[in-house]
């Protein structure tokens, strides 16, 4: 069992690195292609329909890859009314685990929904790019929800073991905390 979990987490870490690389690739292709479009149109009087379609698919990929990393680094938008009132770290830990379990359940529901969604698209495939079907591009949606489930699970295991989970920090924080 432990081997399975360790293997899963190792695989998960690889997936996270791939997600980051993909984000970088997609964002920069979006920048280059959309800037190229501005140049092409204003200087060479050329316009390409696929640019807009590419950019819109790019936004979806960025949204779901980014959201899946936001789960890994616990950067999701949340409205925390009560938990800071909890006095002991022990209680806080319990709440955090409860929330991660809740998030796992919801992500599982969303994953089921998005698999149904992709299957529905697959029934009558359409093609925005020559040979690649739209349903293939939309696979990112269930994929990212599944990665989120693993992220939550890994966070639960870390919390139980007293380890800290990976974090992301902004450099500007130092400026923010100056008084």
């Amino acid at each position: 069992m432990n081997d399975f979990i360790n293997g899963l987490f190792a695989f998960h870490r690889v997936i996270i690195v791939i997600e980051k690389a993909l984000l970088f690739l997609i964002l920069f292709s979006m920048i280059i292609i959309s800037f190229g479009q501005v140049i092409a149109r204003n200087i060479f009087d050329q316009g390409y329909m696929w640019v807009d379609i590419f950019l819109r698919h790019g936004v979806i990929w960025i949204a779901f890859l980014g959201a899946s990393l936001a789960t890994e680094y616990r950067q999701h938008i949340k409205i925390d009314v009560f938990s800071h009132m909890l006095s002991t770290p022990y209680k806080r830990k319990q709440i955090e685990i409860a929330i991660s379990v809740f998030q796992m359940v919801i992500c599982a529901l969303l994953a089921i929904g998005s698999i149904e969604y992709v299957m529905m698209l697959k029934e009558y495939p359409t093609y925005d790019f020559k040979w690649f079907p739209v349903w293939g591009l939309r696979m990112i949606v269930p994929f990212s929800f599944v990665v989120m489930i693993v992220s939550c699970f890994s966070h639960i295991v870390n919390t139980l073991a007293g380890r800290s989970s990976p974090t992301i920090t902004y450099d500007s924080e130092s400026i923010m905390n100056e008084k």
């Binding site: 479009q37 149109r41 009087d45 050329q46 316009g47 390409y48 329909m49 640019v51 807009d52 819109r56």
Partner: peptide, 9 residues
């Protein structure tokens, strides 16, 4: 037609 299409949403 030699016209320039501007792709727009």
């Amino acid at each position: 037609l030699g016209a320039n299409p501007i792709p727009v949403g």
